[in-house]
Amino acid sequence: MLSSNIKGVTSGFPLRIEAEKVVEKQVELNAAFLKNMFTKIEWKPFVDASRAMGYAELPDEAESSMLESDEFLQKFHHALLELHLEEGALVCPETGRRFLVNKGIPNMLLHEDEV
């Protein structure tokens, strides 16, 4: 899950995304992979995350039968693999601690007093 890792923080989930810059990359669609991934993710936070990155095409709820639709697969694929948070932050919902994302790389290193 998108959760925070600061000492004492129990749930810290999900990290909220603050998007400053989102880039899109073309990735080839792999239906078998997507179907497998679908069973492993929590849909609601996933939808919220993609909305925070400016993509609002995903439905609020989804079930596995929808994977038969090419249109749905395409959207799921796009949100999962083609949207990249280039600049921004991941914010711990409990403490407000911000983990900066620079050049697409989140920095999750903790300060000494947080370990």
């Binding site: 899950m1 998108l2 959760s3 890792n5 810290g12 929590e42 936070p45 919220d48 697409g104 989140p106």
Partner: peptide, 28 residues
């Protein structure tokens, strides 16, 4: 070195969710 190693690992891994949305990285 931390008591809740699993939780925090989980968390750290999930940070990669910048594009993976909110995947359970521990599972993916």
């Amino acid at each position: 070195q931390r008591g809740n190693a699993t939780t925090s690992l989980y968390t750290q891994l999930v940070s990669m969710s910048s594009e993976l949305g909110t995947l359970h990285v521990g599972q993916i």
